[in-house]
């Protein structure tokens, strides 16, 4: 798959990144280099290798189902740009 400046603009939009038009060509070239490396990896013979979900051969430690976190609302509200009646306020969003 080749990445052009249109794809770069689309991905940047999805990630809410502001990318200048001038930078998109350079970015698409660098992203294409990364994809070329992935293509090279694809050529490795992995017929005898079991699929791996994670690079580390360890599993997730689990936590007991207990309440350990205190109420930190006042601290969180203090650093919020806007808050009222215990809620964080954001510009109106409605679908």
């Amino acid at each position: 798959m080749a990445i052009d400046s249109k794809v770069v603009a689309q991905v940047a939009h999805l990630a809410r990144l502001k990318v200048d038009q001038a930078d998109t060509d350079a970015l698409s070239s660098r992203l294409n280099d990364i994809l070329a490396m992935v293509d090279q990896l694809q050529q490795a013979d992995v017929a005898d290798v079991a699929p791996m979900a994670h690079p580390l051969d360890v599993t997730q430690p689990l936590r007991e189902d207990e309440v350990s976190e205190p109420n930190i609302r006042d601290k969180a509200m203090a650093i919020a740009p806007a808050a009222e009646e215990g809620c964080f306020l954001v510009p109106r969003v409605i679908e």
């Binding site: 964080f88 306020l89 954001v90 109106r92």
Partner: peptide, 12 residues
């Protein structure tokens, strides 16, 4: 929460 926040949206 879209009501009661004078034109803003409240987040819980």
């Amino acid at each position: 929460l879209h009501e009661d926040f004078h034109g803003m949206t409240g987040i819980d």
